[in-house]
Design a protein around this nucleic acid. Structure first.
Lengths: 112, 112
DNA sequence: TTCATATGTGGCAATATGGCCACATAGATT
DNA sequence: AATCTATGTGGCCATATTGCCACATATGAA
């Protein structure tokens, strides 16, 4: 098992940043909403029902990570998903969640 | 834009937990190592060079998230990747990183 | 200009996370 | 039994993250 070098470490950090950006329920819900096409901040805001400043900061994190990009039009700012493959990979995440809950269920039954 | 209900919120939380588990460079490096087959903690430990207690806790987080599972054999505990599709989806994450760095490069050139 | 709307930013307090130390435990070896 | 090895846990502290408030900015409307 080789020891990890500096290049590997940097690479892992960059990828982890993207995953971390997706690793928050509010941000994830917004990303899923954006899968249906671009949305303005106001729409995302009413979708998740949090303070607008909170939404704004979450969007900044997603943008910084390269997951979304934005476009200004009049008063509104529209965000869109920058990397389409993300939605496919969320399907994989779902399968992790499902296999985990299956195991939990089995464990509960086992204890029952 | 519909408002998100409780079920959606729980689902987003569960998926975010998985992504958050992957959203740390050390954990990501270990997951990538496990893509090559199961490894004992001692191997992962020398791979990432951190205190063994730190490794142990990171592995517990991955296990809790359902990303890995473990198997004890004598003194050693072997971890393996529970959900193979994760490696495919890391390819997508890489593409996010790459398109981001391309944009950064373009921005730097634009300023130059 | 004055006001309203949409969005972003600074700051602060609460909470979560990460890493290291010391210690605990389980299994192997002598 | 005494000891060693591999792994896990509890505790502590430093740092990061979150969420809300207040305020700032930009654009459009009156």
């Amino acid at each position: 098992m080789k020891v990890i070098n500096e290049r590997d470490r940097v690479s892992a950090q960059l990828k982890a940043d993207v995953l971390k950006a997706l690793g928050h329920p509010t941000r994830l819900m917004m990303v899923e909403a954006l899968a249906g096409g671009e949305r303005c901040v106001c729409e995302l805001n009413e979708l998740v029902e949090a303070d607008h400043s909170t939404i704004s900061k979450h969007l900044a994190i997603l943008k910084q990570a390269g997951v979304v990009s934005d476009r200004k039009e009049g008063l509104k700012v529209f965000y869109r998903l920058e990397v389409p493959c993300i939605m496919r990979f969320l399907g994989c995440v779902t399968s992790v969640v499902e296999s985990r809950s299956t195991r939990h269920l089995a464990a509960v039954k086992g204890r029952g």
